[in-house]
């Protein structure tokens, strides 16, 4: 899409705000609507938009596939380890009460950690799946559609 000037300019303006909005949805999920799933998808959508407009090779430079390969399990690992941290501190699996100085502080920390784990895995999976599909596609002429 090299010659789509409007698309290029508008996406360049929008992508930083999409990423910022994803972070807001991620870390403000306790108070407003949203959470890890939504934030992960919005974050991934920003990268997918970048890849669509500026080309998959540029997107791969920003987010290399070997990094993604670690991020996919990292989120699930963070969630699982948060659960085990509850056991280590004398509670049950995924019991956040023992994580902080007070049960409420522990709940806040636990929810923050597991939601972040969800966001990391969801966004990494979405971007990986897109890269995998797009990586197999030969360039399609716009007239072909």
């Amino acid at each position: 899409m090299r010659h789509h000037l409007v698309l290029r300019v508008v996406s360049k303006l929008l992508i930083p705000f999409m990423l910022l909005f994803a972070l807001y949805v991620q870390f403000h999920g306790d108070f407003g609507p949203g959470g890890g799933f939504q934030a992960g998808v919005i974050f991934a959508a920003a990268f997918i938009l970048y890849a669509l407009v500026f080309g998959i090779d540029h997107a791969r430079e920003v987010l290399p596939e070997h990094v993604l390969r670690y991020l996919v399990p990292a989120g699930l690992a963070l969630y699982t380890l948060t659960g085990f941290a509850g056991i280590a501190l004398g509670g049950k699996y995924l019991d956040y009460d023992v994580l902080g100085s007070t049960p409420t502080a522990g709940q806040h920390l636990g929810i923050l950690l597991v939601e972040f784990g969800v966001g990391v895995t969801v966004s990494a999976v979405m971007v990986s799946v897109f890269f995998t599909f797009a990586g197999r596609t030969r360039d399609v002429d716009e007239e072909d559609w």
Partner: peptide
Amino acid sequence: DIGVPNIVTSVLASYRGYDTL
């Protein structure tokens, strides 16, 4: 107990943490 205004989040991440895992 949790102090989170968004009940969806507290159910999803805390009360139903196993399901979300």
